[in-house]
Write a protein that binds this DNA or RNA. Structure first.
Lengths: 330, 330
DNA sequence: GCACGCTATCGAACCGGTTCGATACTGGGC
DNA sequence: GCCCAGTATCGAACCGGTTCGATAGCGTGC
């Protein structure tokens, strides 16, 4: 392992000149720069990250704090936006690091250490639940950040879908042919995205003049089965189902099938995320493509822009979604 | 941000004593240690990672080099072993970093920089293809490593399923009731795991005295459809299908259904990985559980053990698999 | 009462880079 | 011939920790 002092010696310059040359400073003469670069090449020189970080104050890494990997059910979504984050980070010269906290307390303590010990130059927060103090911490510490999701507090940069519109569009699509008895199968209640989706659902129902029904499901898939059984068992009408994730929609389809209801003739269904599995069901599942890759990519862009100090304040970005209509709601 | 010098001053000790106290060295007197820890608590002291790394030579991070995230089709598998890696790293006090190279050249250059610039203390390699030089590089550099998969070269620590047995068990299961015309739908040809699975498939066929047929598929799912169409179109018998991934099995089921073959009565099918989607098909898909989480967890354990220098040589570990029989092969 | 060993602590060096301020050298203007 | 501005380079300080070798202070044994 050769150090910059080896390079300096070999190129017959001082350490400081070697450093300047290697970093492309305009002050060093062309001939000198070449000598230094040749020496570096010859000695297979690679600057040690830790040393560079210590003196420059930059780690060249971005940290992702994401509890969702623990909650599964969303692996398709996760891998897609992870890839968006990764590609964006790579293109900006950054490395991605990752923590999956098990609960809110761990998330908060990891975030605190991460910022204080300077593990990275910025952090991506995935959909923290509303009432933990993560967001306040990051804002108060003035640590570069971006939130995937909608922020309940001010001063936070965010990238998100327009979840109100996502649910409204999906619901309108199902109600358009004149269906009158829609059900929303929603996720955990304390997240902004489920609140927004419920709002969108209610808006569409209101416009169509039909009664909205909403069920909350924490731990699919069996809970979905129970919801539908209860609904039908109570003799309630049901001709349209919106779920906030595709696997839930698949379970809903199976349950309806077992109860003798046809999809889409009796009940139309649409999910969200446009997972690969939408291709594999029978009938194929309609869904809302949320462009998770773009979500990740935009998050990194916003974060890097904020780290350059170019933008003073927090900014928000919305990633477009699009309905993908398949047989389950045709 | 307070540094160790602030702590030392506040606790009325030298910097070196402060460092010793903070790291629990036995030499410092109990009363002194308490003074130092109280000062650290009071000033909310957190040692900067880069500084610690530079002086101690340890980064306290593990890097995952994994091209498979780019190739998708395996998101369930990926998230599970990623979680195994993450949990193992966390428990050992390490942070996980991640790179997704786009091709072999990038994989190799990233690996080289990673080792030379000391991004991490060790690296996890996911199933690199056989003929790139990744493994030689890592062995020659004597860099702590572990391979997820089987190594074609010596001196590499690995964690893997027994892929020969995986395919053999799956095939035997299908052939047991007397089926005579099995087909293996395999993945990319140049990976050790596809070779092993083909071998296991052939062994089971040989034992049963039936003729093995093997098709290679790079880019599912449409390729699977073509394979089956071609097979049936040629008038070949077909009563059992083994695929190396679950999504391929699902496509196979759909294609058979469209061609008027019943699953499992006419053709029995089993996939691998035991993805969530096996629950969502009709009939439900049999599969082989590969215990991806355990795979990741074991990989980290092996890596950390190797980093302690406890073990001199490379070691191998096999993670057990298990057949999960559902309706598609009942 | 003195030599000795042990314990707790300290100052300084070190890890490998970046960056600041000083300096030697160069060429141009008058 | 002298002064000055600008250029290329250098030594030293610095980033914030860890660790090595030295030392002061102490109690013990004889």
């Amino acid at each position: 392992m050769s150090t910059i002092r080896d390079i300096a010696r070999s190129a017959n310059v001082s350490v400081s000149t070697a450093s300047l040359a290697l970093n492309g400073d305009a002050r060093v003469r062309e001939a000198t720069r070449r000598r230094v670069l040749e020496a570096a090449e010859l000695l297979d020189y690679h600057p040690m990250r830790a040393a560079r970080s210590l003196s420059s104050g930059r780690t060249w890494s971005i940290h992702l704090l994401d509890p969702s990997l623990g909650a599964n059910m969303t692996s398709g979504f996760f891998t897609h936006y992870l890839r968006g984050l990764h590609d964006g980070a790579r293109d900006g010269g950054y490395t991605l690091t990752l923590t999956v906290p098990q609960d809110e307390a761990e998330a908060r303590s990891v975030l605190k250490r991460l910022m204080a010990e300077r593990w990275s130059d910025g952090v991506v927060l995935m959909n923290p639940s509303e009432h933990d103090g993560l967001l306040q911490d990051v804002v108060e510490a003035r640590f570069p950040h971006v939130l995937l999701g909608r922020s309940p507090v001010a001063g936070v940069s965010t990238v998100d879908n327009d979840n109100v519109a996502v649910a409204r569009d999906a619901t309108e699509h199902l109600l358009a042919p004149g269906r009158r008895a829609p059900l929303l199968i929603n996720g955990p209640a304390y997240r902004t995205f489920t609140q927004d989706r419920e709002q969108g659902f209610r808006e569409a129902c209101s416009t169509a003049g039909v009664r909205p029904r909403v069920a909350y499901v924490d731990a699919p898939p069996d809970a979905v089965r129970e919801v539908i059984d209860a609904h039908l068992g109570a003799g309630l009408a049901l001709d349209a189902i919106v779920t906030v994730a595709d696997p839930q929609a698949v379970v809903a389809m199976r349950t309806l099938h077992e109860r003798g209801r046809r999809v889409p003739q009796d009940v139309a269904i649409i999910g969200m995320n446009n997972d690969d599995l939408t291709q594999y069901t029978n009938p194929r599942l309609s869904s809302v493509e949320l462009n998770a890759f773009a979500l990740g990519r935009n998050a990194i862009e916003l974060l890097l822009a904020g780290m350059d100090g170019a933008t003073g304040g927090a900014s928000q970005r919305l990633v477009p979604h699009e309905l993908v209509i398949r047989e389950s709601s045709a």
